[in-house]
């Protein structure tokens, strides 16, 4: 991903607005750093996310609840890490996914990282605090089985995700 143009990131960091309308749900700031081993900041990494809306609906007709989608929430975004490795998104707290049948899945967002020297892109999922007991998740379970923590199971590129509620 050398020299990925900043112009292709413009307007993609804010998922709380789509076509000048405000998305439903709790607005949050999803931010973190892309680091190499030794906590060396990775600049110009491209981070992309894909998540359901506040009611857990994905913006894709394959989601059986697609007809309920918040028309003001797009669900996809892109950020570029700065010189200190920070990326950030304004988005909404996703609702529990109901699309796979059975028990609703934990609220989550898919995250993809592309960076110089990172030969193959990395894909992971972030989860959120205060997950209701009524939900379960195969993705969360498979991570817990391996490492028992939500960090990417990789050493050199550490994806840290901090979640903070925006003041709005």
């Amino acid at each position: 991903m050398p020299f990925f143009p900043g112009e292709l990131v413009v307007g993609c960091e804010d998922l709380t607005h789509f076509e000048e309308k405000t998305a439903r749900g709790q607005h949050i700031l999803l931010t973190g750093r892309i680091l190499e081993e030794g906590k060396i900041a990775v600049r110009d990494a491209i981070v992309e996310i894909w998540q359901p809306d506040a009611n857990g609906v994905l913006r894709d007709p394959l989601d059986p609840h697609f007809h309920e989608i918040d028309p003001r929430f797009f669900g996809w975004g892109r950020s570029r890490s700065n010189a200190e490795g920070w990326y950030q998104f304004r988005t909404v707290l996703p609702g529990p996914l109901r699309a796979d049948g059975g028990v609703p899945r934990c609220p989550q967002a898919n995250v993809m990282v592309l960076a110089i020297g990172l030969v193959r892109r990395l894909s992971t999922t972030v989860f959120f605090h205060d997950v209701p007991e009524s939900v379960d998740d195969p993705t969360l379970n498979c991570i817990a089985d391996v490492g028992g923590c939500l960090r990417c199971a990789i050493r050199n590129l550490i994806l840290t995700v901090f979640l903070r509620t925006a003041s709005t």
Partner: peptide, 12 residues
């Protein structure tokens, strides 16, 4: 320095 040194987790 940028690539994973450990195997990735295969998820569903």
């Amino acid at each position: 320095t940028s690539n994973p040194s450990q195997p990735l987790i295969h998820r569903p």
